[in-house]
Design a protein around this nucleic acid. Sequence first.
RNA 1: UCCUCAGUAGCUCAGUUGGUUAGAGCAUCUGACUGUUAAUCAGAGGGUCCCUGGUUCAAGUCCAGGCUGGGGAGCCA
Length: 510
Amino acid sequence: MPVLTKKFVYISDLKKHEGQQVVLQGWVQNRRDSKGIVFIVLRDGTGFIQCVILEDVIGVELFDKVKRLGLESSLRITGTVKTDEKQTGGYEIQADAVEIFSEAEEYPIGKKDHGVDFLLSRRHLWLRSKKQWAIMRIRNQIIYSIHNFFQNRGFVQMDSPIFTGNAVEGTTNLFETEFFDQPAYLSQSGQLYGEAMAMAMGKIYTFGPTFRAEKSKTRRHLSEFWMIEPEMAFYDLEMDMDVIEDFIRTVVGDVIEKCKEELAIIERDLTKLETVVKPFPRILYDDAVSIIRGEKDVDGKNAIKTLEQDLENIKTRISEIKTDIEIREQSLKQAGLKKGVIAFNEEKVRQLKLELKDLEEDERNIPNWLESAKNFKRGEDFGGSDETVITRMFDTPIMVYNWPKAVKAFYMKEDAPGIAKGVDVLAPEGYGEIVGGGERETDINKLLEAIHHHQLPMEAFEWYLDLRRFGSVPHSGFGLGLERIICWVCKLPHVRESIPFPRFVGNLFP
RNA sequence: UCCUCAGUAGCUCAGUUGGUUAGAGCAUCUGACUGUUAAUCAGAGGGUCCCUGGUUCAAGUCCAGGCUGGGGAGCCA
């Protein structure tokens, strides 16, 4: 292996070195060769750059080796930074010298598309690919922005325990483990501990892992995910919603401003994100139900009719695609076609079939969603499809508040009888719930009653009740699912792509 | 747990009403090409058609049961 040097440059800094000779170190992202010339797209974690290597410059023996390098081989390239309009970054490297760290074995992730299943089983390598690189950089920006947002506003970060002796809300399945011969559970929320800390610090936020043992197999569930839970003393529900709105607007705004290259790589439609500058509609649960049931229009649009129209559009599109596929397959049967034409059409057919599969899935699902929306019973919690139905009406996140007490956690503040001062934030484009929060109950007697009613073990909550015994004050907070907001910001098809190593039922490796 | 879709080469997929020796692209290997952008072109190797049983002269294809995976419902961020 070559001797290490401190004098190397990152691809992201190349614009400072235009016309100069630099040393780059990284991995082969792609390689193309012709007689006497090799093009290597090098990646170093900060970006991608094409390097041009000539046989005349590096000599026959080394050239022969470089020409055969497998994908993801590691190397150092010394060369001159040149402007080239054809390159995405605007630069390329004319190589003067090449040193090989390691020649890679046959790389399992090829240049063509793969299924998610296969890619997840190689997640440790998949993370190197361009799109995943962009997603992980956006994830990093979101994490950074979240800390900035709260730190700039005087919130104190706290870590809540991961081993807990009780289930916070008593409803969901928890991972059971053992804590020195006692049964213990992996935390499903830092909420209650956050409340305690808010009484000590005024404003706090947690940022940590959360565990849920439900065997959910959907594109928006993980067994292990990261949650941000702020808690503020002397804040009511309205002030809570003000914070949530400011928070989401700031974080998404930061990503738009600072991740332009990454957003371009994942081909995100920015106009869909830029709407976060608009006020988020605040909708009473009661009104939301009316909208879902199609009894109340939004700006002249009816939720049920919109969804029925969506279904019609999908059916039209399905028959269009089927015709298109048939025409292309017929034309492929002709003799004497050029190879390029065949490849183009075969690829097109493949893409159309993938799209068709998704659309047919929707075609099967939407009638059920329509049925469920029309028959939605006032007093129930929203299902995933109900969220889709209502968010379809808006182009910004919406906040639905004042929920039936029965469907919310025991610690939610009761406003009018049977009404809890909770709020759910639903993201647009079908992403649904990204935030759940609300104002907390201050009255110890109502809490005692709620704990009984939910059949929770009183002794586990004694310490929590102390927060009401010693200087109870109105306070509020919320929980944000990190992976859920990443999914929406990046418009990912699946939450599994939003975290480096996803954990979900049946997936413990890598 | 229920509903639904799928399983064919290392990967992504095609395979007609059951009918010769199961195909293509990518990847790999050999060769050509001095500006390629998933480079291209010529050639080669590569198969437990998920498993078990059944129908049939004949099964990748039809039937039954099972296994594995995707999506949806429930639950939720």
